[in-house]
Design a protein around this nucleic acid. Sequence first.
DNA 1: TCTCACATTAAATTTACCTTAAAAACGGAC
DNA 2: GTCCGTTTTTAAGGTAAATTTAATGTGAGA
Lengths: 225, 225
Amino acid sequence: MKILIIEDEVKTLQLIKQGLEEQQWEVDIAYDGSMGFQLATRQAYALIISDIILPMLNGLELCKKLRQAGIDTPILLLTALGTTDDKITGLDAGADDYLCKPFEFKELMARVRALTRRMGSIVHTNLLKIADLEMDLDTKTVVRAGKEISLTAKEFTLLEYFIRHQGRVISKVELAEKIWDVTFDTGTNVIEVYMNFLRKKIDKDFEPKLLHTQIGMGYVLKIVS
Amino acid sequence: MKILIIEDEVKTLQLIKQGLEEQQWEVDIAYDGSMGFQLATRQAYALIISDIILPMLNGLELCKKLRQAGIDTPILLLTALGTTDDKITGLDAGADDYLCKPFEFKELMARVRALTRRMGSIVHTNLLKIADLEMDLDTKTVVRAGKEISLTAKEFTLLEYFIRHQGRVISKVELAEKIWDVTFDTGTNVIEVYMNFLRKKIDKDFEPKLLHTQIGMGYVLKIVS
DNA sequence: TCTCACATTAAATTTACCTTAAAAACGGAC
DNA sequence: GTCCGTTTTTAAGGTAAATTTAATGTGAGA
């Protein structure tokens, strides 16, 4: 699950984004309120972190509009406006927490943990990983270097087998048995065709390459050759 | 629904109690941590407001014990310990918010409103949501974008399963087991027919579409593909 | 340079799913 | 019980996408 940051000040944005990514969160970014609204209504986030002073639509109006639209994602407002009345306005607009700049980074992270804890249990469950390639068995999605990659059922099963046995050279006979469920030589080249499909999708536009051929032996999924 | 205050300093206690009662809250009181724990585990509160420095069992230990006991009532810690590290310790112990004394009373009230907002709606109505689609389990009604949608029993059960597992790709085998209670392949296409029924009712006249097919894998209920 | 194992592409085939209609089962009302 | 409306299931035809086949290209090793 992802976190959405809405902030027009690039330095603050980068700081938060980096910190969240270190905690294994996926992060989306918006530079103004209306862009933030678009994103927040189009997909489900675990948390929205928003500045109050924003172009287009300010953080308070954003809160209200999201709540009106039925979005109940936790919202953390982050701003330089530090009076008690500002905080009250923010919280009553529908925000769940309010943190004043300048804030200590570790406090922000603790508040993020507190706000996402409830969601957290449903999060990051069935994930398989190698390098920057992630496979989510629940949502059946594959992401490499942050880009979502769409796989067919057979491609998915095949890649799953490779990730579960990463580093091991897997023979074509083994693949035929485990993925295609045939135990005799059918004289086909499906496996080669499918390895080609997979490579086009998960390796072609990325580095380092993960799928390697060991001529006469089989294929391996591993980092570096 | 009630709020529980755990505080040994009588003056602060009275101040908060009175303020909450003016907002029509019923208030229970505990003067030490273990009494607070007893009360919190014996009935459901909308919110627990606790000091950290308490006789018997301090506020942090109380938080941890309550979370371990499976109590997920929102907890607001209220204390004189004001460093960032104190806040982090509190939030990571399982608290939802942390306010330092001396605090302005109206900020406390705003934070109480923020923390109880969710509970207020979740508790007395038993409803499931995704995007602008709402399902009320008590009245067995479904509403999308404000329009009431009438579903048959099987359609309702099916949609409920999807909403409870939103984001997850659900295979036809799983649906057959969980909704139709068959564990073997009956060679039927009921599921496809029912997906068609559901789509006609909840997706046909609305945007964005929520039910998506992942060929060879199953179906997902989610916002955007 | 020749061979073999694998890569690549396009075309053929098959499967999974959608849609519609009609049949069967169910549930009140009488 | 019978009738009738509703819900659930079966069945059949159509379609797009996934899978497989087949034909050709390429590169490493003898």
